[in-house]
């Protein structure tokens, strides 16, 4: 398998549950790196804590497994100190948007060049199924046994409002789109956010009577649509997939170079 050049094979099979969507994200993230023909030593993958964060252990890049929610803060230090490196920052939904919510919006605001991937399974998996800021109103979780009264963030709208210059969304059913979007995000100069809906058959779908991995991926197929499609106009409930934002904006490291120039005048 070509992607095997990019993994630490000795740690496989990985720790994720059978049918976990995170493996599909890993699979197609590696394909994006391969198709871009990137040098493994040019990539730093920074992750936080949780099921999602384990992804960094499996890839043969420079890998930094950090603290819950802090991946983007560590990544900011790596990127700013060595701008030639390519930063990939996969995060879970609780990781990126609850404990790491502040770092998320500020990294977006700075428009620092890195690729943030929100592996959204709508639950805290590693600790056993508590609701996350993306679970949504009316869902069930071990900490919402009577139904969740917390409303969810819209990751795309949040990232856009915070200033991210590339914002996209897809699902694990749409594997080719994962590869395509990650490729475009890596090539984009600035802060890129990709939300990938990813099934947690062990906790989220089981607790919410949505079946297992297959039913969840069928759900992704049937409840999502291309941005601006006819289907969306007919059924506004559908979740849109694709690139929502792609704009040229001054990148943070480039801007700091100007500060250095001004200071040395």
């Amino acid at each position: 398998m070509p992607v095997k050049d990019y993994i630490r094979e000795r740690f496989f099979p990985h720790i994720w549950c059978s049918g976990c969507g995170h493996g599909i994200i890993l699979n197609n993230m590696l394909r994006a790196v391969e198709e871009l023909d990137m040098d493994k030593s040019d990539i730093v993958m920074v992750s936080g804590i949780g099921c999602s964060a384990r992804i960094s252990g499996y890839v043969d890049f420079h890998t930094l497994h950090t603290l819950h929610g802090r991946a983007l803060a560590f990544a900011t230090g790596v990127k700013m100190s060595q701008p030639k490196l390519k930063l990939m920052v996969p995060m879970g939904d609780g990781d990126a948007l609850a404990i790491g919510g502040n770092h998320f919006i500020h990294a977006a605001r700075r428009n620092i060049d890195m690729t943030a991937i929100v592996m959204n399974n709508r639950i805290y998996g590693m600790t056993g199924g508590q609701f996350s800021p993306l679970s949504g109103y009316g869902t069930l979780a071990t900490t919402a046994p009577y139904s969740n009264i917390d409303h969810n963030f819209d990751v795309v709208a949040l990232a856009q409002a915070a200033g991210a210059s590339f914002v996209a969304r897809t699902t694990t059913f749409h594997a080719r789109q994962i590869t395509d979007l990650i490729k475009q995000a890596i090539e984009h100069r600035g802060f890129s956010v990709i939300e990938i809906l990813s099934q947690c058959p062990t906790y989220f779908s089981r607790k919410n009577n949505m079946g297992g991995q297959i039913e969840m991926m069928e759900w992704y197929k049937n409840n999502t649509t291309r941005i601006g499609s006819k289907a969306k106009q007919e059924n506004p409930q559908l979740i849109e997939r694709g690139i929502f934002v792609q704009r040229d904006m001054p990148e943070y490291c480039d801007e700091y170079d100007k500060v250095i120039e001004a200071a040395q005048k």
């Binding site: 398998m1 992607v3 095997k4 993994i7 496989f12 099979p13 990985h14 994720w16 059978s18 049918g19 976990c20 969507g21 995170h22 493996g23 599909i24 890993l26 699979n27 197609n28 394909r31 694990t172 059913f173 594997a175 080719r176 590869t179 991995q213 991926m217």
Partner: peptide
């Protein structure tokens, strides 16, 4: 190749 791309375990090629 959708089986290969959707495999969460990188187990099929």
């Amino acid at each position: 190749k959708m089986c290969e791309l959707r495999c969460p375990d990188l187990a099929i090629e």
